[in-house]
Design a protein around this nucleic acid. Sequence first.
DNA 1: ATATCAAATAGATGAATTTCAATGTGAGGT
DNA 2: ACCTCACATTGAAATTCATCTATTTGATAT
Lengths: 90, 90
Amino acid sequence: MNEKEIATIFKAFCDENRIRILLLLLDGEKCACRLLEEMNITQPTLSHHMKILCDSGIVVGRKDGKWIHYSLSDEGIEKAQKFIEFLRRK
Amino acid sequence: MNEKEIATIFKAFCDENRIRILLLLLDGEKCACRLLEEMNITQPTLSHHMKILCDSGIVVGRKDGKWIHYSLSDEGIEKAQKFIEFLRRK
DNA sequence: ATATCAAATAGATGAATTTCAATGTGAGGT
DNA sequence: ACCTCACATTGAAATTCATCTATTTGATAT
């Protein structure tokens, strides 16, 4: 895991709207259209943020017909957690 | 802690050079000039990144004459850790 | 096949970020 | 007082990012 990969993981957390999305996903899986209802952004903007969140590994999408159900990824979150823990061991 | 504050904390981790700096600080306190030696950026660029790192709370600077000694901040890192942990409790 | 709905993509725009060269500031040292 | 060293600030250029409108894709239903 190099510096670039680590930065990509944490891109998930460095935008206000993406934090908002993560908090919405705490309730459990939600499709993009549900998220869209609860946010004040357009559909393409949401799509953009979902791509960054998925690229970071913090969120995963499950395709189901024309819907995509997004949820938090334990593995992704664990990766982020591991790095933060690593910083603390001094 | 609102979405904006959380995003500000994690700004520390979403740039390649800042991750590099954090890793260098794992060894312990270092002054800016030491960090500068080990990075391939100019002094003003380093100064810019140090500001973002300090604003995020992940790094603290200790002034000592004309030097500033930077180190990782346990409190800051703990804050980040708490948020990530919060995401995992589902 | 057509219509409809969910989501992605393309393209544009403005804002934010990264970076550098030049300059300023402030603390020691001579 | 002057010089030097460590760092910050300014201002500008280049890049990246967030956002929008418009359009496309892909899946389901009629």
